[in-house]
Amino acid sequence: MSAPREPVFLARETYRHRRLRDAARFLPFLAVFVFFIPMLFGPEAGTAMTKVFLFFAWLTLIIVSFLVSRRLATDIDVQQGDGADDGQPG
């Protein structure tokens, strides 16, 4: 009985926020992918090189997580207690 009352085309700001949440959901999969890359390294890749790669990738993930989470934190502020983020992405 209650059809989604949202407009078909969302305001740019809302649209960005929806995609931001998608990014947050996607990020752990990226992390797993990146962390498993060293398994593909050949025998010539030494510990030092693997280590440099891993820590560089790790730091990058932390920075991306920082950028995404910082903006999502304000989302929680606004929506604490409701289910808006479970709505269908527009």
Binding site: R21, A24, L27, P28, F35, T47, L54, W58, L61, S65
Partner: peptide, 22 residues
């Protein structure tokens, strides 16, 4: 065992990054 120890920290990193959904 060289770099293997780092997996102990990679797992929690993934979980923390998955905070929004989990």
């Amino acid at each position: 065992s060289g770099l293997e120890f780092v997996t102990i920290y990679l797992g929690p990193t993934v979980i923390m990054i998955a905070w929004w959904a989990l």
